[in-house]
């Protein structure tokens, strides 16, 4: 298999605002055709990285390259990337069709071809009949699609998406995740997707970079990120982490090292029940429980003072403790994640 080429690369890139280090010596490569998510809380530097690629920001130090070309001093309008903005930033005085054709109009593509490509793009985002409308006459989800079409019509080599689903409601957001992934496969270009929603990042991406305080904590495929987080921060930000420290960790694992266990890996059994030989085992008491339909979440208080969340599928009529029940928790030792020294 030929080695895929590198679409975007950061080499020790920093962006400082006075004393604030929005991006702090970050290095990574994004491959051609990859769906790459930048995940992190607000202020972690992920959006600044996106703006560095788009050209709205210039790095304080380091090198940003797109397809091997150093982007220092290259303005946004000379870069082969397009952006889907967080609030869509559609032009309110233009029709949907004019919005989509804007980039082609600026690049002096002949009118006939411009119209044809705009229509094709509108059809791809399922807005074929909406070309004559103004953005103000569209719903949030439709505006989002127009923004996507307006960026993709220029056939950029890299598409940047800045929390594009943030303003949509849950159902629409889930539907758009499926569609975005399908569109990315169809056009085959690199998508760089900024989000603070770990669900979005895990569901769509080939790889995810987790940002924290201007630095990258880990870059990995979604499953690896979830199963083998390298730091406590990643374990806590991606999924429910169940972090145990000090005495609580000693009670559960026999060592005071910080550790974490995913809630769905834990088995619940009546107090005093035996566990398989290789399992780790701890006693506790049900502090509270939340019935969530497909599953139930139990919060278990441990003798060492810590808490563990346990999520149990409601598939069969198995052991279902009540609030205040004494229970035994056990899990396979390979699921335990430990951090630090």
């Amino acid at each position: 298999m030929p080695q895929p080429s590198i679409a975007v690369s950061f080499r020790a890139v920093s962006r400082h605002y006075g004393a604030v280090r929005a991006v702090d010596e970050v290095s990574f490569d994004i491959l051609d055709g990859e769906f790459f998510a930048m995940l992190g809380p607000s202020g972690s530097g992920k959006t600044t990285c996106l703006r560095l690629i788009a050209g709205f920001e210039q790095p304080t130090a380091g090198l940003v390259a797109i397809h091997g070309r150093d982007m220092a001093g290259v303005p946004p309008y000379d870069r082969d990337v397009n952006t889907v903005f967080q609030d869509y930033a559609l032009f309110p005085h233009m029709s949907v069709r004019e919005n989509v054709a804007y980039g082609l109009m600026i690049r002096k593509v002949p009118a006939a071809e411009r119209a044809k490509r705009a229509e094709e793009m509108l059809a791809m985002v399922k807005l074929a009949d909406f070309g004559a409308r103004k953005p103000s006459q569209l719903s949030g989800g439709q505006r989002q699609r127009v923004a996507l079409a307006r960026a993709l019509v220029n056939r950029p080599s890299v598409l940047l998406l800045d929390e594009p689903l943030g303003a949509l409601d849950l159902k629409l957001r889930e539907q758009m995740q499926v569609e975005l992934k399908a569109i990315q496969r169809q056009v085959g270009i690199t998508f760089i997707y900024v989000t603070h929603d770990q669900g979005e990042a895990l569901s769509m991406s080939d790889r995810v970079a987790v940002f924290n305080q201007g630095r990258i904590e880990q870059i990995a495929a979604p499953a690896e990120l979830y199963e083998k987080p390298r730091t406590e921060f990643v374990a806590g930000f991606v999924g429910i982490s169940n972090l145990l420290q000090g005495e609580a960790a000693r009670a559960a694992t026999g060592a005071a090292r910080a550790c974490s266990i995913r809630p769905e890996k834990i088995h619940l059994a009546p107090a005093g029940a035996a566990a398989p030989g290789s399992a780790m085992r701890v006693e506790g008491e049900v502090e509270s429980l939340l019935y969530l339909g497909a599953n139930t979440r139990f919060d278990i208080r441990l003798p060492g003072g810590g808490y563990l969340a346990v999520v149990q599928q409601n598939r069969d009529a198995h052991y279902a403790p009540e609030q205040g029940s004494k229970v035994t928790l056990w899990w396979d030792a390979r699921h335990l994640m430990t951090f630090g020294g």
């Binding site: 709205f56 903005f85 609030d87 930033a89 109009m105 600026i106």
Partner: peptide
């Protein structure tokens, strides 16, 4: 009242400052 990202969007789509003023800023101010 207009979104500052609108001007960035125009630059992102290939328009320089003058084109952005002509096609986006001025029509919005008209």
């Amino acid at each position: 009242r207009s979104s500052p990202a609108m001007m960035e969007a125009s630059m992102d789509l290939g328009a320089n400052s003058l084109q952005t003023f002509r096609h986006v800023v001025l029509p919005n101010l008209a």
